[in-house]
Design a protein around this nucleic acid. Structure first.
Length: 290
DNA sequence: AAGCGAACCTGGCTGC
DNA sequence: TGCAGCCAGGTTCGCT
């Protein structure tokens, strides 16, 4: 479930359960996900206090008292669920199916405040790593990573500079984490639609005016999605099992063949494949050569 | 060097 | 009902 808004939603959900607490027990149930777990993963966590929980692009970063950072990526299907240890459940609490054990619960963190944090990932494209806090920006995960779209760096000038002379399609440029880090297929489609930009147009063809507009729209779409608790496509987006609702706001994503939402537009949402991934757009509202 | 397809892995849905 | 085929929110690798 994870583009930037979903990861931020998870971060906000994990924060009260993890920050200020210590790991009392860590169950690592397999040797690897997309990447091998680091050496002595559980032992390096147990006893450590989580001092803060941050996010960089689609990565979660738990700051440990040891000076290491627990880096977590959700891949395509990673999800966290927070429950209270034991069988404790609030009276009347909705019993989500994920409240039970699942074959894909790969990691369980037991914390000193009684919280239990379960990482579930059917496809195992996610991973966890432990890296030193000092110099983390040059570790394998973050070296060369692009700007943070909700940070101060994203501007029209930045987009113009990053896309300058690129003949790669706008869609691909926006998905390139080395340029802007955190966008994925959904929010790129939504941002291009809102900006009225054709997904196949060369990235380097953006005028400074359109670049500025696009930068603002990217920020706007992401902020709206975070406020909505992210998008829920195939399972819960939030760590208590509840759903995000930004998917109800999609204007083009996964709406192939449905009417364009632009008032007065008679066209329907089209789908094309770029770089092996579906792009949803309206040819009338996002014409070529704009 | 950039750009593209394939690969990693499982599950859910569609259609025959 | 069964099964094949296709699709999925990401990233990385290897080949033009």
């Amino acid at each position: 479930m994870p583009e930037l808004p979903e990861v931020e939603t998870v971060r906000r959900g994990l924060e009260p359960a993890m920050v200020g607490a210590r790991f009392t027990r860590v169950e690592q149930r397999r040797p690897d996900l997309r990447l091998p777990f680091p050496e002595r993963f559980a032992e390096r966590l147990v006893g450590q206090e989580v001092q803060g929980l941050g996010r960089r692009a689609k990565y979660l970063l738990a700051d440990l008292a040891s000076g290491e950072v627990l880096v977590m990526h959700l891949g395509m299907s990673g999800r966290f669920l927070v429950t209270q240890g034991g069988a404790t459940r609030m009276p009347g609490e909705f019993h989500h199916e994920h409240g039970g054990e699942s074959a894909h619960d790969h990691v369980v963190f037991h914390l000193s405040n009684g919280a239990k944090v379960t990482y579930n990932d059917a496809r195992r494209f996610g991973f966890m790593d432990l890296v030193p806090r000092a110099g983390i920006e040059t570790c394998r995960h973050f070296d060369g990573m692009g700007i943070e779209p909700l940070g101060n760096e994203l501007s029209g000038e930045a987009v113009t500079r990053l896309f300058e002379a690129k003949r790669t399609p706008l869609k691909a440029a926006l998905l390139d984490q080395r340029l802007i880090a955190g966008l994925g297929n959904i929010y790129v489609c939504e941002a291009l639609f809102r900006a009225g930009l054709n997904p196949e147009a060369p990235a380097g063809s953006l005028s400074p005016e359109k670049a500025a507009e696009l930068a603002g729209i990217i920020r706007e779409v992401l902020q709206e999605a975070v406020a909505a608790g992210g998008s829920t496509l195939r399972d819960h987006a939030q760590v208590d099992g509840s759903l995000g609702y930004f998917q109800h706001t999609f204007r083009v994503y996964d709406r192939e063949g449905e009417p364009c939402v632009t008032p007065g537009c008679a066209n329907t949402v089209a789908r094309l494949v770029q770089g092996g991934r579906s792009t949803f757009y309206c040819l009338t509202c996002q014409p070529p050569g704009e």
